[in-house]
């Protein structure tokens, strides 16, 4: 999906002077968001299979609520057996969950602009970059990378807790 997004990004730049430039540009934001969502979904489904059906708009709330709670329970268990490394890992995973929630909120809002607010145009910046409502495309390009980093933090902690 990131490959598709990147392809659309490059195509938008190639067509910057034409009308389709705007459409390619917006579509690349959409695909970067989708790539981000897919990565987070893999992580969240591994935590609890029933969450694979969760609509994307519910992710931030679930990450700040149920996911955080599961990790806090794990942290408590690790404390009881004196496993300090895992206590630290749980604290790290809790911050990661909160960062993913923030990321998904801003990425999702940017996607809403891209898909449903055509009156807000893509701005070509002339340095091989463009932006949408002041969100630079390089930032969108980073979303899936961040999501992957923080999701792995949670997954690695989760397997250590033995489910």
């Amino acid at each position: 999906m990131e490959v598709v997004a990147h392809h659309l990004q490059l195509e938008a730049l190639r067509r910057a002077m034409q009308q389709e430039g705007d459409q390619f540009g917006r579509s690349s934001y959409n695909r970067y968001y989708y790539a981000t969502f897919l990565r987070v979904r893999t992580m969240i489904s591994a935590l609890d299979a029933k969450w694979s059906q969760l609509p994307h708009a519910d992710y931030p709330m679930t990450l700040r609520g149920a996911v955080k709670k599961k990790l806090q329970e794990g942290r408590k268990r690790a404390l009881k057996v004196g496993d300090h490394e895992i206590v630290a890992a749980c604290a790290r995973a809790i911050s990661a969950a909160s960062e993913i929630a923030n990321l998904m909120e801003s990425a999702s809002a940017t996607r809403v602009v891209a898909d449903y607010n055509p009156q807000i145009p893509i701005t070509f910046l002339g340095n091989g970059r463009f932006s949408l409502n002041n969100i630079n495309i390089t930032e969108a390009h980073d979303w899936p990378v961040r999501a992957d980093t923080w999701s792995s933090v949670i997954e690695k902690t989760w397997v250590q807790l033995g489910g």
Binding site: A78, D83, E85, T149, W150, V153, G162
Partner: peptide, 10 residues
């Protein structure tokens, strides 16, 4: 973000 994949005490 990713330490070695050693099993934890727990």
């Amino acid at each position: 973000t990713s330490a070695a994949n050693l099993p934890s005490r727990i």
